[in-house]
């Protein structure tokens, strides 16, 4: 563990592409780091256009996580698609945070049309209220999220407004319990 921490500290100012340079554990604040040109480009363009609406959770060489409010999700996604060539979602998932009474939705967006952004993944995330989770669906912007959002709907109970089929997908048809990926769903015996 000590070694791990030292690695992450020492690599924060180096631009080597070894896989150990992104061990930053806690990075809620934005670091002004010129070593990651891709991240810098995206984040600067987003901050120019959206200002305070988009918060950068972390920024690594090929990853950056953006936190937006649920009402700004669609326009941010549209901006990323039209201006930066992020044309598909690798996954759309959710994480349950019962402590904050929120569910975090993560869209891992990638690009196939912009060759510079091939290795890059933008994690567009938003937090919705856990008691009545509703979010705008991105299906009209990224058709590739169709099944991922359906899965998130049944696994976490997030209702996607505008999604044509908020239905049972992977779980059995007679499933009659709370959504299983919520933290208050316990596996038997564990």
């Amino acid at each position: 563990m000590e070694k791990a921490n030292s690695n992450s500290n020492s690599n924060s100012n180096s631009n080597s592409n070894n896989n150990n340079n992104i061990g930053q554990s806690q990075a809620i604040e934005v670091r002004d780091n010129d070593n990651y040109p891709l991240s810098k480009e995206i984040i600067s363009s987003l901050s120019i256009n959206f200002g305070e609406k988009v918060k950068v959770v972390y920024k690594k060489e090929f990853r950056s996580k953006l936190m937006v409010a649920p009402e700004n999700l669609v326009e941010t996604a549209l901006f990323l698609r039209n201006n930066h060539g992020f044309d598909h979602a690798e996954s759309a998932s959710g994480t349950d945070y019962p402590a904050d009474n929120e569910i975090e939705l993560n869209y891992h967006l990638g690009s196939y049309s912009n060759i510079d952004y091939y290795p890059y993944i933008v994690i567009l995330s938003t937090r919705v209220n856990r008691d009545d989770p509703k979010s705008n669906s991105l299906i009209n912007i990224f058709p590739s999220v169709e099944y991922h959002e359906r899965e998130t709907y049944e696994m976490l109970g997030v209702y996607f407004l505008g999604h044509p089929r908020n239905e049972r997908f992977i779980l059995p048809e007679d499933w009659a319990d709370i959504p299983p990926l919520r933290k208050d769903f316990r596996i038997k015996g564990r």
């Binding site: 563990m1 070694k3 791990a4 921490n5 690695n7 070894n18 896989n19 150990n20 061990g23 554990s25």
Partner: peptide
């Protein structure tokens, strides 16, 4: 494994 190593900070 790559994800764990990245999260924890391990050099292989």
């Amino acid at each position: 494994s790559l994800a764990v190593e990245d999260l924890v900070g391990i050099t292989v």
